[in-house]
């Protein structure tokens, strides 16, 4: 049973040490299109040229959202929910996004949120 204590001390130590100064281990990703190119080629069809929304296409307005709101929504869409087994709030758009991704229209959430905000919200 001494093994238990030793193991515990080891993991407690590792956890304490890694608690300070760890780095995000994200990979560097490159994208085929800029957020502006993705927006014009795809999003604009349903969210409008100015993000004003298109009821006929069931695309909601996105020109009044803040950057964090946009980030949360885009995260939800691309990840299919913001938790582990929690439903996405955008089930149709989650499906559409998978299709867009297959066609190369992938984007960074932060970059896209900034593009939408700076182009359609702040400009007003």
């Amino acid at each position: 049973m001494k093994k238990i204590t030793f193991t515990l001390l080891s993991i407690a130590t590792m956890a304490l040490l890694t608690g300070c100064g760890d780095k995000p281990k994200s990979d560097i990703v490159t994208y085929k299109y800029t957020p502006a190119e993705v927006y014009t080629a795809t999003c604009a069809h349903c969210h409008g040229d100015k993000g004003e929304g298109m009821p006929s296409k069931k695309g909601p307005a996105i020109d009044k959202k803040t950057i964090p709101e946009l980030e949360m929504d885009l995260f939800d869409i691309k990840n299919g929910g913001v938790g582990q087994s929690t439903a996405t709030e955008h089930d149709v758009m989650e499906h559409n996004m998978k299709k867009l991704k297959e066609k190369g229209y992938e984007y960074d959430v932060k970059a896209m949120a900034n593009y939408i905000y700076n182009t359609f919200n702040r400009a007003k």
Binding site: M1, K2, I4, T5, L9, S10, A12, T13, L16, L17
Partner: peptide, 22 residues
């Protein structure tokens, strides 16, 4: 658990370089 005595555990602590690094 009552898996080991406090004294035994403390011996490990004293001997362990890990404890020092904690």
């Amino acid at each position: 658990e009552g898996v080991m005595s406090r004294r035994d555990a403390m011996k490990f602590l004293a001997a362990s370089p890990l404890a020092a690094s904690v």
